Amino acid sequence: MTAPLPTLLPIPPGTVNLADYERHAQARMDANAWAYFSGGAGDEITLRANASAWQQIELAPRVLRPLAHGNTQLQLLGQRLAHPLLAAPMAFQCLAQESGEIGMAYACAAMGAGLVVSTQASQPLDAIAASYLQDAAHGPLWFQLYLQHDRAFNIDLLRRAEAAGYQALVVTVDAPTSGVRDRERRAPFKLPAGIGAINMTGLPAAEPVRLTPADSPLFDDLLRHAPTWDDIAWLRSQTALPILLKGITHPLDAKQAVGLGANGIICSNHGGRTLDTMPATARLLPGVVAAVGGAVPVLVDGGIRRGTDVFKALALGASAVLVGRPLVYGLATAGAAGVAHVIRLLRDELEAAMALTGCRSMSDIGPELLAGDWQR
């Protein structure tokens, strides 16, 4: 059963880009939610670098090429997409606005954007799926999986996702523990009553461990159950769904992922939320693409704020991009209408970038349209 269509909220006059939405969202969120969604790890060096790295890449446009009947369509994992934009998995979206993941789903489906739903969604995964899939214009629907210590629970979550109609699994591999997030610690961040990881209900508690003063609560307790490559191989044996690994940034890991049967890779530094001083994903992407060698699609997230950023990611070899914080800012500002507008802005800007660089289709976008050292 689909959830009721969320009430559409007005978009503030003069809202013309994603930076406008960020300002509006900050004014609407309380300090608790703002710290959670906007903050990064440590000194937030990687958080800032993600956006600035795209800005530093310069374009080398071509002219007088035929442009009539151009489009942003592409094929991804056997599915036709209207454009290369997907919503990244983001937890607890009801913190941003009461329609939460349901509002996100309606907006993404209406705009033909792919949707990746977080394990830590604040609404039921089947209700989110039903809201998304009821629109014939929808794109790909994927479920992001944080592997838990209990394999029976993982199987149950997987079967629920399969039954609800999710078409691929996105396994986040770069967060065996949370990053050191100063903004959240200063807030201090806590989930309000009534908001939580509802799809995690029923997870058995891990067997307690007795620590000595010489033991580390992190390494000797929490990380006893951190996923490994063996868990990825096990998951591959449990489902026919395509599996994408999110958080791959090292070329050797990219090669190992392909060798284990991953169907796709998402080059991601977790939006700068885990390990600070990592390079921006714009700088990591070319190495991952080269390591994969076209065996599977490579997607990228982190710092996408303009259609030109999307264009540059595609020119560097990405098949598509995931967008995170800007969609939450759209949700906080104007609910589903804000999310839809953010997607429309990015698509319009991408189309303009394509036209102004002489590209009529996704296949026309390549590294020769990037200036200087970014050319390959």
Results as ranks from 00 to 15, higher is better:
88 A>E: 01
43 D>F: 07
45 I>Q: 05
63 V>I: 12
78 G>M: 09
48 R>A: 15
79 Q>T: 14
68 A>N: 08
80 R>P: 12
76 L>E: 00
72 T>N: 04
43 D>C: 02
81 L>W: 03
98 E>P: 14
87 A>W: 02
70 G>I: 05
51 A>Q: 15
50 N>V: 03
69 H>Y: 15
89 P>F: 09
94 C>L: 12
77 L>E: 05
96 A>H: 01
57 I>C: 07
73 Q>D: 07
92 F>A: 01
49 A>K: 01
79 Q>P: 04
91 A>M: 10
95 L>C: 08
62 R>H: 14
62 R>T: 06
98 E>R: 15
55 Q>A: 15
61 P>M: 13
56 Q>I: 06
46 T>M: 03
79 Q>R: 12
78 G>V: 09
91 A>N: 08
63 V>L: 11
83 H>C: 01
88 A>G: 07
55 Q>W: 10
92 F>M: 02
85 L>E: 02
62 R>L: 14
80 R>A: 15
66 P>F: 02
82 A>E: 11
44 E>R: 03
54 W>C: 00
90 M>A: 13
39 G>R: 03
88 A>T: 11
50 N>T: 02
58 E>R: 14
45 I>W: 08
49 A>S: 07
68 A>K: 09
42 G>W: 03
61 P>S: 13
87 A>T: 06
45 I>K: 06
78 G>F: 10
95 L>F: 10
78 G>D: 08
61 P>I: 12
73 Q>M: 11
57 I>S: 02
79 Q>W: 08
64 L>W: 13
65 R>K: 11
53 A>Y: 00
76 L>G: 00
72 T>Y: 00
77 L>F: 12
97 Q>T: 05
65 R>A: 05
61 P>K: 11
50 N>L: 00
74 L>Q: 03
61 P>V: 10
42 G>N: 06
68 A>R: 13
44 E>V: 07
64 L>E: 10
41 A>L: 01
59 L>V: 14
82 A>Y: 06
82 A>C: 09
69 H>A: 15
96 A>I: 01
75 Q>H: 13
94 C>Q: 15
53 A>T: 04
39 G>K: 04
65 R>Q: 12
69 H>N: 15
99 S>E: 10
42 G>A: 08
90 M>K: 07
67 L>A: 07
91 A>W: 11
76 L>R: 00
98 E>C: 06
76 L>I: 01
81 L>E: 00
82 A>M: 09
44 E>Q: 11
87 A>M: 12
70 G>R: 11
63 V>P: 00
91 A>Q: 08
78 G>N: 09
45 I>M: 05
83 H>S: 01
52 S>D: 11
51 A>D: 14
59 L>D: 13
90 M>S: 13
67 L>R: 06
52 S>A: 14
75 Q>I: 06
50 N>C: 02
61 P>C: 11
86 L>G: 06
96 A>W: 01
64 L>R: 12
59 L>P: 09
82 A>F: 04
50 N>Q: 03
84 P>Y: 03
58 E>L: 14
77 L>T: 07
46 T>V: 05
72 T>I: 03
47 L>C: 05
93 Q>P: 11
71 N>V: 02
55 Q>D: 15
64 L>H: 12
50 N>M: 00
45 I>L: 08
53 A>N: 03
81 L>A: 03
71 N>I: 02
57 I>F: 03
83 H>V: 00
99 S>I: 05
81 L>P: 00
49 A>E: 04
57 I>A: 07
84 P>A: 07
54 W>V: 02
59 L>C: 14
